[in-house]
Design a protein around this nucleic acid. Structure first.
Length: 561
RNA sequence: UGGGGCGUAGCCAAGCGGUAAGGCAUCGGCCUUUGGAGCCGACAUGCGCAGGUUCGAAUCCUGCCGCCCCAGCCA
Protein backbone atom coordinates (compact mmCIF):
# COMPACT_ATOMS: atom_id res chain seq x y z
CA UNK A 1 0.00 0.00 0.00
CA UNK A 2 1.46 3.34 -0.98
CA UNK A 3 1.58 6.20 1.47
CA UNK A 4 -1.39 8.04 0.07
CA UNK A 5 -3.71 5.18 0.78
CA UNK A 6 -5.72 5.27 3.94
CA UNK A 7 -4.89 2.48 6.37
CA UNK A 8 -7.42 -0.27 6.09
CA UNK A 9 -9.80 -0.26 8.99
CA UNK A 10 -11.48 -3.22 10.54
CA UNK A 11 -14.66 -4.72 9.17
CA UNK A 12 -17.00 -7.56 10.01
CA UNK A 13 -15.33 -9.93 7.54
CA UNK A 14 -11.98 -9.59 9.26
CA UNK A 15 -13.66 -10.05 12.61
CA UNK A 16 -15.06 -13.36 11.47
CA UNK A 17 -11.68 -14.42 10.17
CA UNK A 18 -10.06 -13.41 13.44
CA UNK A 19 -12.54 -15.58 15.30
CA UNK A 20 -11.73 -18.51 13.04
CA UNK A 21 -8.05 -17.95 13.60
CA UNK A 22 -8.44 -18.01 17.34
CA UNK A 23 -10.70 -21.04 17.32
CA UNK A 24 -8.42 -22.79 14.85
CA UNK A 25 -11.29 -23.70 12.55
CA UNK A 26 -9.18 -23.47 9.42
CA UNK A 27 -5.76 -24.03 10.99
CA UNK A 28 -5.02 -20.27 10.77
CA UNK A 29 -5.32 -20.63 7.02
CA UNK A 30 -6.92 -17.85 4.97
CA UNK A 31 -7.66 -18.65 1.35
CA UNK A 32 -10.10 -16.54 -0.63
CA UNK A 33 -11.05 -16.29 -4.26
CA UNK A 34 -12.48 -13.85 -6.74
CA UNK A 35 -15.11 -15.72 -8.79
CA UNK A 36 -16.36 -13.68 -11.78
CA UNK A 37 -18.60 -15.01 -14.48
CA UNK A 38 -16.97 -14.19 -17.84
CA UNK A 39 -20.10 -12.63 -19.28
CA UNK A 40 -19.14 -8.95 -19.18
CA UNK A 41 -16.43 -6.50 -18.25
CA UNK A 42 -15.48 -5.85 -14.66
CA UNK A 43 -16.78 -2.68 -13.04
CA UNK A 44 -15.85 -0.78 -9.92
CA UNK A 45 -18.22 -2.90 -7.88
CA UNK A 46 -16.06 -5.87 -8.81
CA UNK A 47 -13.02 -3.80 -7.87
CA UNK A 48 -14.40 -3.57 -4.35
CA UNK A 49 -14.69 -7.35 -4.24
CA UNK A 50 -11.23 -7.83 -5.78
CA UNK A 51 -9.64 -5.49 -3.26
CA UNK A 52 -11.48 -7.26 -0.46
CA UNK A 53 -10.59 -10.79 -1.49
CA UNK A 54 -7.00 -10.19 -2.57
CA UNK A 55 -6.51 -7.63 0.20
CA UNK A 56 -7.60 -9.99 2.94
CA UNK A 57 -5.40 -12.75 1.58
CA UNK A 58 -2.43 -10.37 1.60
CA UNK A 59 -3.18 -9.08 5.04
CA UNK A 60 -3.42 -12.54 6.58
CA UNK A 61 -0.55 -14.02 4.63
CA UNK A 62 -2.93 -16.22 2.67
CA UNK A 63 -3.81 -16.76 -0.95
CA UNK A 64 -6.50 -15.58 -3.32
CA UNK A 65 -7.49 -17.58 -6.39
CA UNK A 66 -8.98 -16.33 -9.59
CA UNK A 67 -11.81 -18.59 -10.63
CA UNK A 68 -14.13 -18.10 -13.53
CA UNK A 69 -17.61 -19.39 -12.76
CA UNK A 70 -18.26 -20.45 -16.32
CA UNK A 71 -21.33 -22.64 -15.94
CA UNK A 72 -23.50 -20.96 -18.55
CA UNK A 73 -21.90 -21.24 -22.01
CA UNK A 74 -24.73 -19.32 -23.65
CA UNK A 75 -23.59 -16.06 -22.05
CA UNK A 76 -19.88 -16.43 -21.67
CA UNK A 77 -16.95 -15.63 -23.90
CA UNK A 78 -13.13 -15.61 -23.90
CA UNK A 79 -13.20 -11.90 -24.68
CA UNK A 80 -14.51 -11.45 -21.19
CA UNK A 81 -12.01 -13.74 -19.50
CA UNK A 82 -9.16 -11.84 -21.17
CA UNK A 83 -10.48 -8.45 -20.12
CA UNK A 84 -11.09 -9.65 -16.58
CA UNK A 85 -7.54 -10.89 -16.22
CA UNK A 86 -6.15 -7.66 -17.61
CA UNK A 87 -8.24 -5.55 -15.25
CA UNK A 88 -7.29 -7.50 -12.13
CA UNK A 89 -3.62 -7.25 -12.99
CA UNK A 90 -3.95 -3.56 -13.70
CA UNK A 91 -5.52 -3.07 -10.29
CA UNK A 92 -2.32 -4.51 -8.89
CA UNK A 93 -3.27 -8.04 -7.88
CA UNK A 94 -1.78 -11.38 -8.80
CA UNK A 95 -3.24 -14.87 -8.61
CA UNK A 96 0.07 -16.52 -9.58
CA UNK A 97 -0.68 -19.84 -11.25
CA UNK A 98 -4.00 -20.21 -9.46
CA UNK A 99 -6.22 -19.44 -12.43
CA UNK A 100 -9.15 -21.82 -12.25
CA UNK A 101 -12.45 -22.41 -13.96
CA UNK A 102 -15.59 -24.02 -12.64
CA UNK A 103 -15.47 -25.95 -15.90
CA UNK A 104 -12.24 -27.58 -14.65
CA UNK A 105 -14.47 -29.34 -12.14
CA UNK A 106 -17.26 -30.53 -14.44
CA UNK A 107 -16.13 -34.14 -14.19
CA UNK A 108 -15.80 -34.03 -10.40
CA UNK A 109 -19.15 -32.32 -10.14
CA UNK A 110 -20.64 -35.09 -12.22
CA UNK A 111 -19.24 -37.69 -9.84
CA UNK A 112 -20.58 -35.73 -6.88
CA UNK A 113 -23.99 -35.74 -8.53
CA UNK A 114 -23.83 -39.50 -9.03
CA UNK A 115 -23.06 -39.85 -5.34
CA UNK A 116 -26.12 -37.83 -4.38
CA UNK A 117 -28.25 -39.94 -6.70
CA UNK A 118 -26.87 -43.12 -5.16
CA UNK A 119 -27.66 -41.75 -1.71
CA UNK A 120 -31.22 -41.05 -2.80
CA UNK A 121 -30.64 -37.28 -2.54
CA UNK A 122 -31.12 -36.35 -6.18
CA UNK A 123 -33.41 -37.39 -8.99
CA UNK A 124 -33.98 -36.84 -12.68
CA UNK A 125 -37.08 -34.74 -13.24
CA UNK A 126 -39.08 -34.42 -16.43
CA UNK A 127 -41.24 -31.51 -15.45
CA UNK A 128 -41.13 -28.62 -17.91
CA UNK A 129 -39.76 -25.28 -16.85
CA UNK A 130 -43.23 -23.96 -16.40
CA UNK A 131 -44.29 -26.96 -14.36
CA UNK A 132 -41.28 -26.67 -12.12
CA UNK A 133 -42.30 -23.12 -11.38
CA UNK A 134 -45.87 -24.17 -10.60
CA UNK A 135 -44.74 -27.00 -8.37
CA UNK A 136 -42.39 -24.71 -6.48
CA UNK A 137 -45.23 -22.94 -4.70
CA UNK A 138 -45.05 -19.31 -3.66
CA UNK A 139 -43.44 -17.21 -0.98
CA UNK A 140 -46.25 -18.05 1.40
CA UNK A 141 -47.39 -21.49 0.19
CA UNK A 142 -45.43 -24.71 0.23
CA UNK A 143 -44.62 -26.36 -3.08
CA UNK A 144 -45.70 -29.82 -4.30
CA UNK A 145 -43.43 -32.73 -4.89
CA UNK A 146 -42.56 -33.62 -8.45
CA UNK A 147 -44.15 -36.87 -9.64
CA UNK A 148 -40.61 -37.96 -10.64
CA UNK A 149 -39.28 -37.49 -7.11
CA UNK A 150 -39.83 -41.12 -6.10
CA UNK A 151 -37.87 -42.67 -8.94
CA UNK A 152 -35.53 -45.45 -7.93
CA UNK A 153 -31.77 -45.00 -7.73
CA UNK A 154 -31.02 -47.24 -10.69
CA UNK A 155 -33.49 -45.49 -12.93
CA UNK A 156 -32.09 -42.11 -11.92
CA UNK A 157 -28.57 -43.27 -12.58
CA UNK A 158 -29.53 -44.55 -16.02
CA UNK A 159 -31.42 -41.41 -16.93
CA UNK A 160 -28.64 -39.14 -15.69
CA UNK A 161 -26.18 -41.10 -17.81
CA UNK A 162 -28.42 -40.68 -20.84
CA UNK A 163 -28.64 -36.95 -20.13
CA UNK A 164 -24.89 -36.77 -20.30
CA UNK A 165 -24.79 -38.81 -23.49
CA UNK A 166 -26.98 -36.30 -25.20
CA UNK A 167 -30.02 -38.49 -25.69
CA UNK A 168 -32.44 -35.79 -24.59
CA UNK A 169 -33.27 -32.40 -26.02
CA UNK A 170 -32.72 -29.13 -24.19
CA UNK A 171 -35.20 -28.51 -21.42
CA UNK A 172 -36.59 -32.03 -21.32
CA UNK A 173 -34.83 -33.28 -18.21
CA UNK A 174 -33.13 -31.86 -15.17
CA UNK A 175 -31.31 -33.32 -12.23
CA UNK A 176 -32.76 -32.04 -9.01
CA UNK A 177 -31.70 -32.25 -5.41
CA UNK A 178 -34.25 -33.96 -3.16
CA UNK A 179 -34.55 -31.60 -0.22
CA UNK A 180 -37.82 -30.09 0.97
CA UNK A 181 -40.65 -28.74 -1.17
CA UNK A 182 -42.15 -27.13 1.93
CA UNK A 183 -39.06 -25.21 2.98
CA UNK A 184 -39.69 -21.52 3.66
CA UNK A 185 -36.42 -20.97 1.77
CA UNK A 186 -37.33 -21.40 -1.89
CA UNK A 187 -33.76 -22.38 -2.71
CA UNK A 188 -34.30 -25.60 -0.79
CA UNK A 189 -37.38 -26.66 -2.77
CA UNK A 190 -35.63 -29.33 -4.82
CA UNK A 191 -33.31 -27.01 -6.74
CA UNK A 192 -32.17 -27.87 -10.23
CA UNK A 193 -28.58 -29.12 -10.31
CA UNK A 194 -28.18 -29.79 -14.03
CA UNK A 195 -29.99 -28.61 -17.10
CA UNK A 196 -29.55 -29.88 -20.62
CA UNK A 197 -27.90 -27.31 -22.86
CA UNK A 198 -26.55 -28.39 -26.21
CA UNK A 199 -24.19 -25.42 -26.30
CA UNK A 200 -20.55 -24.96 -27.16
CA UNK A 201 -18.49 -24.00 -24.13
CA UNK A 202 -15.54 -21.63 -24.50
CA UNK A 203 -13.29 -24.08 -22.65
CA UNK A 204 -14.83 -27.55 -22.71
CA UNK A 205 -16.04 -27.23 -26.27
CA UNK A 206 -18.68 -29.87 -27.03
CA UNK A 207 -17.66 -32.30 -24.32
CA UNK A 208 -20.83 -31.58 -22.39
CA UNK A 209 -24.44 -31.12 -23.35
CA UNK A 210 -25.61 -30.54 -19.82
CA UNK A 211 -24.23 -27.95 -17.47
CA UNK A 212 -24.27 -27.53 -13.71
CA UNK A 213 -26.31 -24.70 -12.25
CA UNK A 214 -24.28 -22.06 -10.45
CA UNK A 215 -25.73 -23.14 -7.11
CA UNK A 216 -24.54 -26.67 -7.69
CA UNK A 217 -21.10 -25.66 -8.94
CA UNK A 218 -20.13 -22.72 -6.81
CA UNK A 219 -19.88 -24.14 -3.32
CA UNK A 220 -18.17 -27.32 -4.42
CA UNK A 221 -15.70 -25.32 -6.52
CA UNK A 222 -14.75 -23.37 -3.41
CA UNK A 223 -14.50 -26.62 -1.49
CA UNK A 224 -12.31 -28.29 -4.10
CA UNK A 225 -9.93 -25.32 -4.05
CA UNK A 226 -9.70 -25.43 -0.28
CA UNK A 227 -11.17 -21.97 0.06
CA UNK A 228 -11.65 -21.01 3.70
CA UNK A 229 -13.72 -17.86 3.30
CA UNK A 230 -16.16 -17.58 0.41
CA UNK A 231 -16.91 -13.89 0.30
CA UNK A 232 -19.88 -12.92 -1.84
CA UNK A 233 -22.68 -10.41 -2.04
CA UNK A 234 -25.88 -10.20 -0.01
CA UNK A 235 -28.24 -11.77 -2.51
CA UNK A 236 -26.55 -15.12 -1.94
CA UNK A 237 -27.33 -15.16 1.75
CA UNK A 238 -30.45 -17.21 1.06
CA UNK A 239 -28.36 -19.66 -0.90
CA UNK A 240 -25.94 -20.41 1.90
CA UNK A 241 -28.16 -23.10 3.46
CA UNK A 242 -28.23 -24.84 0.10
CA UNK A 243 -24.45 -24.68 -0.37
CA UNK A 244 -24.05 -25.98 3.17
CA UNK A 245 -26.46 -28.79 2.44
CA UNK A 246 -24.61 -29.90 -0.70
CA UNK A 247 -21.27 -29.87 1.03
CA UNK A 248 -22.55 -31.70 4.07
CA UNK A 249 -24.18 -34.39 1.94
CA UNK A 250 -20.93 -34.81 0.06
CA UNK A 251 -18.84 -34.71 3.21
CA UNK A 252 -16.19 -32.47 1.67
CA UNK A 253 -14.23 -29.44 2.93
CA UNK A 254 -16.61 -26.78 4.18
CA UNK A 255 -15.69 -23.13 3.53
CA UNK A 256 -17.41 -20.33 5.43
CA UNK A 257 -19.49 -18.09 3.19
CA UNK A 258 -19.65 -14.44 4.22
CA UNK A 259 -21.93 -11.98 2.49
CA UNK A 260 -21.39 -8.23 2.13
CA UNK A 261 -23.31 -5.39 0.46
CA UNK A 262 -22.42 -4.66 -3.13
CA UNK A 263 -21.18 -1.22 -4.10
CA UNK A 264 -23.43 1.43 -5.57
CA UNK A 265 -22.28 4.87 -6.66
CA UNK A 266 -24.34 7.95 -7.38
CA UNK A 267 -24.96 9.03 -10.98
CA UNK A 268 -24.13 5.65 -12.48
CA UNK A 269 -25.47 2.15 -12.96
CA UNK A 270 -23.69 -0.97 -11.89
CA UNK A 271 -25.68 -3.85 -13.31
CA UNK A 272 -23.98 -5.87 -16.01
CA UNK A 273 -27.23 -6.04 -17.91
CA UNK A 274 -27.47 -2.25 -18.10
CA UNK A 275 -23.81 -1.77 -18.91
CA UNK A 276 -24.14 -4.31 -21.69
CA UNK A 277 -27.13 -2.44 -23.04
CA UNK A 278 -25.25 0.87 -23.05
CA UNK A 279 -22.55 -0.82 -25.11
CA UNK A 280 -24.84 -2.73 -27.49
CA UNK A 281 -27.09 0.24 -28.13
CA UNK A 282 -24.07 2.40 -28.92
CA UNK A 283 -24.94 4.89 -26.21
CA UNK A 284 -21.32 4.77 -25.15
CA UNK A 285 -18.09 4.13 -27.02
CA UNK A 286 -17.65 0.53 -25.87
CA UNK A 287 -17.01 -1.11 -22.52
CA UNK A 288 -14.05 1.19 -21.99
CA UNK A 289 -15.88 4.44 -22.67
CA UNK A 290 -14.42 6.88 -20.15
CA UNK A 291 -17.89 7.51 -18.72
CA UNK A 292 -18.43 3.86 -17.90
CA UNK A 293 -17.95 2.61 -14.33
CA UNK A 294 -16.04 -0.34 -15.77
CA UNK A 295 -12.43 -0.83 -14.76
CA UNK A 296 -11.43 -0.36 -18.37
CA UNK A 297 -13.52 2.80 -18.61
CA UNK A 298 -12.00 4.23 -15.46
CA UNK A 299 -8.54 3.35 -16.73
CA UNK A 300 -9.15 5.15 -20.02
CA UNK A 301 -10.66 8.06 -18.14
CA UNK A 302 -7.43 8.42 -16.17
CA UNK A 303 -8.16 6.83 -12.83
CA UNK A 304 -5.18 5.08 -11.28
CA UNK A 305 -5.05 1.64 -9.69
CA UNK A 306 -3.94 3.20 -6.41
CA UNK A 307 -6.89 5.58 -6.39
CA UNK A 308 -9.34 2.75 -6.91
CA UNK A 309 -7.75 0.65 -4.19
CA UNK A 310 -7.85 3.62 -1.87
CA UNK A 311 -11.50 4.13 -2.72
CA UNK A 312 -12.30 0.51 -1.95
CA UNK A 313 -10.59 0.89 1.42
CA UNK A 314 -12.41 4.06 2.31
CA UNK A 315 -15.80 2.76 1.29
CA UNK A 316 -15.50 -0.06 3.80
CA UNK A 317 -17.27 -3.39 3.93
CA UNK A 318 -20.59 -3.91 5.62
CA UNK A 319 -23.98 -5.52 5.17
CA UNK A 320 -25.98 -2.34 4.74
CA UNK A 321 -27.19 -1.53 1.25
CA UNK A 322 -25.68 1.81 0.43
CA UNK A 323 -24.82 4.23 -2.32
CA UNK A 324 -21.52 6.00 -2.11
CA UNK A 325 -21.28 9.54 -3.44
CA UNK A 326 -19.17 9.75 -6.58
CA UNK A 327 -17.41 12.67 -4.88
CA UNK A 328 -15.47 10.19 -2.76
CA UNK A 329 -14.13 8.42 -5.84
CA UNK A 330 -13.18 11.79 -7.32
CA UNK A 331 -11.45 12.74 -4.11
CA UNK A 332 -9.38 9.57 -4.27
CA UNK A 333 -8.09 10.25 -7.79
CA UNK A 334 -7.38 13.85 -7.06
CA UNK A 335 -5.32 12.85 -4.07
CA UNK A 336 -3.26 10.35 -6.05
CA UNK A 337 -2.89 12.52 -9.13
CA UNK A 338 -2.05 15.60 -7.08
CA UNK A 339 0.95 13.73 -5.76
CA UNK A 340 2.06 12.18 -9.04
CA UNK A 341 0.75 14.00 -12.14
CA UNK A 342 3.04 16.38 -13.99
CA UNK A 343 1.78 19.94 -14.26
CA UNK A 344 1.38 21.44 -17.70
CA UNK A 345 -0.51 24.33 -19.22
CA UNK A 346 -3.37 23.89 -21.64
CA UNK A 347 -6.04 26.35 -22.67
CA UNK A 348 -9.39 24.69 -23.29
CA UNK A 349 -11.27 27.70 -24.63
CA UNK A 350 -8.61 29.98 -26.12
CA UNK A 351 -8.79 33.76 -26.18
CA UNK A 352 -5.90 35.53 -27.86
CA UNK A 353 -3.85 38.06 -25.93
CA UNK A 354 -1.42 40.42 -27.67
CA UNK A 355 1.29 41.98 -25.51
CA UNK A 356 1.60 45.26 -27.37
CA UNK A 357 4.85 46.30 -25.71
CA UNK A 358 6.57 42.91 -26.06
CA UNK A 359 9.26 42.82 -28.78
CA UNK A 360 7.98 41.32 -31.99
CA UNK A 361 9.67 38.01 -32.78
CA UNK A 362 11.12 37.57 -29.30
CA UNK A 363 10.77 34.22 -27.55
CA UNK A 364 11.75 33.54 -23.97
CA UNK A 365 11.97 30.16 -22.36
CA UNK A 366 10.25 30.22 -18.98
CA UNK A 367 11.18 27.69 -16.36
CA UNK A 368 8.20 25.84 -14.95
CA UNK A 369 7.94 23.41 -12.06
CA UNK A 370 6.73 19.96 -13.08
CA UNK A 371 5.18 19.06 -9.78
CA UNK A 372 5.26 21.26 -6.69
CA UNK A 373 4.40 18.18 -4.63
CA UNK A 374 7.46 16.32 -5.86
CA UNK A 375 10.75 18.13 -6.25
CA UNK A 376 12.27 15.13 -8.01
CA UNK A 377 9.90 15.72 -10.93
CA UNK A 378 12.16 18.63 -11.87
CA UNK A 379 11.44 21.55 -14.15
CA UNK A 380 10.86 22.18 -17.81
CA UNK A 381 10.84 25.12 -20.09
CA UNK A 382 7.82 26.77 -21.69
CA UNK A 383 8.10 29.26 -24.57
CA UNK A 384 6.70 32.76 -24.04
CA UNK A 385 6.07 35.26 -26.81
CA UNK A 386 4.13 38.33 -27.87
CA UNK A 387 0.92 36.52 -28.71
CA UNK A 388 -0.59 34.15 -26.20
CA UNK A 389 -3.78 32.29 -25.48
CA UNK A 390 -5.54 32.47 -22.17
CA UNK A 391 -8.78 30.89 -21.02
CA UNK A 392 -11.80 32.79 -22.29
CA UNK A 393 -13.48 32.67 -18.90
CA UNK A 394 -10.39 34.10 -17.23
CA UNK A 395 -11.48 37.46 -18.60
CA UNK A 396 -14.58 39.47 -17.82
CA UNK A 397 -15.45 42.89 -19.13
CA UNK A 398 -17.58 43.69 -16.14
CA UNK A 399 -16.32 41.48 -13.33
CA UNK A 400 -18.20 40.85 -10.10
CA UNK A 401 -16.58 41.52 -6.74
CA UNK A 402 -14.77 38.28 -6.12
CA UNK A 403 -13.51 37.74 -9.66
CA UNK A 404 -9.73 37.75 -9.27
CA UNK A 405 -8.80 37.41 -12.92
CA UNK A 406 -8.31 39.67 -15.90
CA UNK A 407 -10.56 42.62 -16.66
CA UNK A 408 -10.13 45.97 -18.40
CA UNK A 409 -7.44 47.96 -16.60
CA UNK A 410 -6.65 45.10 -14.26
CA UNK A 411 -3.38 43.32 -13.66
CA UNK A 412 -2.88 39.63 -13.46
CA UNK A 413 0.10 37.29 -13.27
CA UNK A 414 0.87 34.83 -16.02
CA UNK A 415 2.13 31.71 -14.35
CA UNK A 416 5.92 31.45 -14.64
CA UNK A 417 5.80 34.58 -16.83
CA UNK A 418 5.14 38.29 -16.38
CA UNK A 419 2.49 40.44 -14.80
CA UNK A 420 0.31 41.84 -17.54
CA UNK A 421 -2.33 44.56 -17.66
CA UNK A 422 -5.40 44.62 -19.88
CA UNK A 423 -5.48 47.80 -21.98
CA UNK A 424 -7.95 47.08 -24.76
CA UNK A 425 -10.73 44.73 -25.66
CA UNK A 426 -11.05 43.96 -29.36
CA UNK A 427 -14.43 42.82 -30.67
CA UNK A 428 -15.89 41.71 -33.98
CA UNK A 429 -18.95 43.23 -35.62
CA UNK A 430 -21.22 40.98 -33.61
CA UNK A 431 -19.72 42.26 -30.40
CA UNK A 432 -17.83 39.08 -29.56
CA UNK A 433 -14.47 39.50 -27.92
CA UNK A 434 -11.83 38.38 -30.39
CA UNK A 435 -8.67 39.39 -28.60
CA UNK A 436 -7.22 41.36 -25.75
CA UNK A 437 -4.47 43.95 -26.00
CA UNK A 438 -2.33 43.96 -22.91
CA UNK A 439 0.98 45.34 -21.78
CA UNK A 440 3.53 43.39 -19.80
CA UNK A 441 5.78 44.63 -17.02
CA UNK A 442 9.32 43.56 -17.99
CA UNK A 443 10.54 43.70 -14.40
CA UNK A 444 8.11 41.05 -13.22
CA UNK A 445 9.39 38.00 -15.02
CA UNK A 446 9.15 35.02 -12.75
CA UNK A 447 12.13 35.10 -10.42
CA UNK A 448 12.72 38.85 -10.61
CA UNK A 449 12.22 40.92 -7.44
CA UNK A 450 9.21 42.77 -8.88
CA UNK A 451 7.54 39.47 -9.62
CA UNK A 452 6.61 39.32 -5.96
CA UNK A 453 4.25 42.24 -6.38
CA UNK A 454 0.82 41.27 -5.18
CA UNK A 455 -1.73 40.80 -7.92
CA UNK A 456 -5.16 39.36 -7.68
CA UNK A 457 -4.76 36.24 -9.72
CA UNK A 458 -2.53 33.96 -11.70
CA UNK A 459 -3.54 32.67 -15.11
CA UNK A 460 -2.29 29.77 -17.19
CA UNK A 461 -1.42 30.48 -20.81
CA UNK A 462 0.14 29.09 -23.94
CA UNK A 463 2.28 30.85 -26.56
CA UNK A 464 0.19 31.16 -29.74
CA UNK A 465 2.95 30.38 -32.22
CA UNK A 466 4.19 27.39 -30.20
CA UNK A 467 0.85 25.99 -29.14
CA UNK A 468 -0.12 22.46 -30.12
CA UNK A 469 -3.68 21.78 -31.15
CA UNK A 470 -5.26 19.10 -29.05
CA UNK A 471 -8.66 17.52 -28.78
CA UNK A 472 -9.89 17.51 -25.23
CA UNK A 473 -12.85 15.46 -24.06
CA UNK A 474 -14.70 16.91 -21.11
CA UNK A 475 -16.80 14.39 -19.25
CA UNK A 476 -19.68 14.82 -16.88
CA UNK A 477 -21.65 12.11 -15.12
CA UNK A 478 -23.28 9.64 -17.51
CA UNK A 479 -26.61 10.12 -15.74
CA UNK A 480 -28.38 13.30 -14.80
CA UNK A 481 -29.84 11.81 -11.62
CA UNK A 482 -28.13 10.56 -8.49
CA UNK A 483 -30.14 7.41 -8.84
CA UNK A 484 -30.66 6.60 -12.54
CA UNK A 485 -33.25 3.98 -11.58
CA UNK A 486 -35.46 6.64 -10.09
CA UNK A 487 -37.86 6.84 -13.03
CA UNK A 488 -41.33 8.22 -13.37
CA UNK A 489 -44.26 6.39 -14.96
CA UNK A 490 -43.68 5.38 -18.54
CA UNK A 491 -39.98 6.21 -18.52
CA UNK A 492 -36.89 4.08 -18.11
CA UNK A 493 -33.45 4.48 -16.68
CA UNK A 494 -32.24 5.35 -20.19
CA UNK A 495 -34.29 8.53 -20.03
CA UNK A 496 -32.05 9.65 -17.20
CA UNK A 497 -28.94 9.72 -19.33
CA UNK A 498 -27.17 13.04 -19.14
CA UNK A 499 -27.16 14.52 -22.67
CA UNK A 500 -24.12 16.62 -21.75
CA UNK A 501 -21.94 13.82 -20.48
CA UNK A 502 -19.37 14.45 -23.20
CA UNK A 503 -18.15 17.73 -24.67
CA UNK A 504 -15.35 17.69 -27.21
CA UNK A 505 -13.27 20.81 -27.35
CA UNK A 506 -10.34 22.02 -29.46
CA UNK A 507 -7.67 23.19 -27.08
CA UNK A 508 -4.24 24.80 -27.28
CA UNK A 509 -1.64 23.03 -25.19
CA UNK A 510 2.02 23.65 -24.46
CA UNK A 511 4.46 22.14 -26.98
CA UNK A 512 5.82 19.52 -24.58
CA UNK A 513 2.53 17.70 -24.95
CA UNK A 514 2.65 17.09 -28.70
CA UNK A 515 3.74 13.46 -28.47
CA UNK A 516 2.50 12.56 -25.01
CA UNK A 517 2.14 8.82 -24.55
CA UNK A 518 -1.31 7.26 -24.13
CA UNK A 519 -2.22 6.72 -20.52
CA UNK A 520 0.02 9.49 -19.20
CA UNK A 521 -1.57 11.61 -16.49
CA UNK A 522 -1.22 15.38 -16.40
CA UNK A 523 -2.61 18.20 -14.41
CA UNK A 524 -3.57 21.08 -16.66
CA UNK A 525 -2.93 23.81 -14.15
CA UNK A 526 -6.06 25.38 -12.73
CA UNK A 527 -8.30 23.13 -14.87
CA UNK A 528 -8.05 19.51 -13.79
CA UNK A 529 -6.43 16.17 -14.37
CA UNK A 530 -6.21 14.86 -17.92
CA UNK A 531 -5.02 11.63 -19.44
CA UNK A 532 -3.88 10.92 -22.96
CA UNK A 533 -6.59 8.80 -24.58
CA UNK A 534 -5.53 5.27 -25.39
CA UNK A 535 -7.89 4.91 -28.31
CA UNK A 536 -7.78 8.11 -30.33
CA UNK A 537 -4.58 9.91 -29.41
CA UNK A 538 -1.73 9.96 -31.95
CA UNK A 539 1.74 11.49 -31.97
CA UNK A 540 1.43 15.12 -33.01
CA UNK A 541 -2.33 15.03 -32.58
CA UNK A 542 -2.92 14.35 -28.92
CA UNK A 543 -6.35 13.61 -27.48
CA UNK A 544 -6.95 14.12 -23.78
CA UNK A 545 -9.66 12.83 -21.49
CA UNK A 546 -10.55 14.90 -18.50
CA UNK A 547 -10.37 12.60 -15.52
CA UNK A 548 -11.70 15.08 -13.00
CA UNK A 549 -11.66 18.83 -12.52
CA UNK A 550 -9.64 20.50 -9.82
CA UNK A 551 -11.68 21.59 -6.83
CA UNK A 552 -12.95 24.95 -7.95
CA UNK A 553 -13.75 27.52 -5.30
CA UNK A 554 -14.62 30.17 -7.85
CA UNK A 555 -17.13 27.86 -9.52
CA UNK A 556 -18.78 27.39 -6.16
CA UNK A 557 -18.84 31.10 -5.39
CA UNK A 558 -20.25 32.04 -8.77
CA UNK A 559 -22.88 29.31 -8.55
CA UNK A 560 -24.08 30.62 -5.20
CA UNK A 561 -25.12 33.89 -6.78
C1' U B 1 -49.63 -13.15 5.00
C1' G B 2 -43.41 -17.12 4.37
C1' G B 3 -38.08 -16.89 4.75
C1' G B 4 -33.38 -14.21 4.89
C1' G B 5 -30.93 -9.52 5.89
C1' C B 6 -30.31 -4.31 7.27
C1' G B 7 -31.44 0.61 10.04
C1' U B 8 -25.36 5.33 13.85
C1' A B 9 -24.77 12.96 10.58
C1' G B 10 -26.13 14.97 3.71
C1' C B 11 -23.01 10.15 1.95
C1' C B 12 -19.96 5.99 3.69
C1' A B 13 -18.45 3.80 8.40
C1' A B 14 -16.19 2.45 13.53
C1' G B 15 -18.38 1.06 18.01
C1' C B 16 -19.51 -5.39 20.79
C1' G B 17 -22.42 -2.53 28.75
C1' G B 18 -18.51 2.66 30.98
C1' U B 19 -20.95 7.76 28.48
C1' A B 20 -20.72 8.59 19.87
C1' A B 21 -13.60 7.01 15.87
C1' G B 22 -12.36 8.23 10.97
C1' G B 23 -13.24 9.65 5.81
C1' C B 24 -16.14 12.28 1.99
C1' A B 25 -19.33 16.50 1.49
C1' U B 26 -20.47 21.23 3.60
C1' C B 27 -19.26 25.90 6.26
C1' G B 28 -15.57 29.36 8.45
C1' G B 29 -10.28 30.99 8.87
C1' C B 30 -4.86 30.84 7.57
C1' C B 31 -1.52 30.28 3.60
C1' U B 32 -0.59 30.36 -1.65
C1' U B 33 2.98 32.69 -8.55
C1' U B 34 -2.55 26.68 -9.65
C1' G B 35 -9.29 30.38 -6.59
C1' G B 36 -5.07 23.60 -6.76
C1' A B 37 -2.39 21.54 -2.69
C1' G B 38 -1.53 22.25 2.51
C1' C B 39 -2.83 23.89 7.59
C1' C B 40 -6.47 25.21 11.63
C1' G B 41 -11.50 25.06 13.24
C1' A B 42 -17.00 23.90 13.06
C1' C B 43 -20.27 19.85 11.96
C1' A B 44 -24.98 13.43 16.07
C1' U B 45 -26.74 15.66 24.36
C1' G B 46 -27.48 11.68 19.62
C1' C B 47 -27.51 5.90 17.38
C1' G B 48 -35.30 3.90 13.15
C1' C B 49 -39.46 4.29 17.17
C1' A B 50 -41.56 2.84 22.03
C1' G B 51 -41.04 0.38 26.41
C1' G B 52 -37.94 -2.66 29.78
C1' U B 53 -33.24 -4.56 32.41
C1' U B 54 -28.91 -1.95 34.63
C1' C B 55 -25.42 2.51 38.93
C1' G B 56 -24.75 3.05 33.59
C1' A B 57 -27.60 1.02 27.01
C1' A B 58 -25.97 2.67 20.13
C1' U B 59 -24.51 -1.98 22.57
C1' C B 60 -28.83 -6.66 26.48
C1' C B 61 -34.54 -7.90 26.37
C1' U B 62 -39.65 -7.08 24.31
C1' G B 63 -42.85 -4.91 20.83
C1' C B 64 -43.46 -1.93 16.72
C1' C B 65 -41.92 0.86 12.08
C1' G B 66 -39.08 1.29 7.60
C1' C B 67 -35.89 -0.50 3.64
C1' C B 68 -33.42 -4.54 0.68
C1' C B 69 -33.28 -9.75 -1.23
C1' C B 70 -35.81 -14.63 -2.62
C1' A B 71 -41.06 -17.82 -6.52
C1' G B 72 -34.52 -18.59 -13.66
C1' C B 73 -33.64 -25.08 -16.46
C1' C B 74 -29.27 -16.84 -14.87
C1' A B 75 -25.09 -15.79 -11.85
Amino acid sequence: MSSNETPTQTNFVKQIINEHNSSGRFDQRVHTRFPPEPNGYLHIGHAKSICLNFGIAQEYGGLCNLRFDDTNPTKEDVEYVDSIKEDIRWLGFDWDEREYYASDYFETLYEYAVKLIRDGKAYVCELTGEQIREYRGTLTEAGRESPYRKRGVDENLALFDRMRRGEFPDGSHTLRAKIDMASPNLNMRDPVMYRILHAHHHRTGDAWCMYPMYDWAHGQSDSIEGITHSICTLEFEDHRPLYDWYIDQLGIHHPQQIEFARLNITYTVMSKRKLLQLVRDGIVDGWDDPRMPTISGLRRRGFTPASIRDFADRVGVAKKNSTVEVALLEHCVREDLNAHALRVMGVLDPLKVVLTNYPEGQVEEMEAVNNPEDEAAGTRTVPFSRELYIERDDFMEDPPRKFFRLAPGREVRLRYGYIIKCEDVVKDDAGNITELHCTYDPLTRSGMPDANRRVKGTLHWVSAQHAVDAEVRLYEQLFALENPDDVEEGKTWLDNINPDSLAVVQAKVEPSLADAAPGTHFQFERKGYFTVDSKYSAPGAPVFNRTVTLRDTWARISKQK
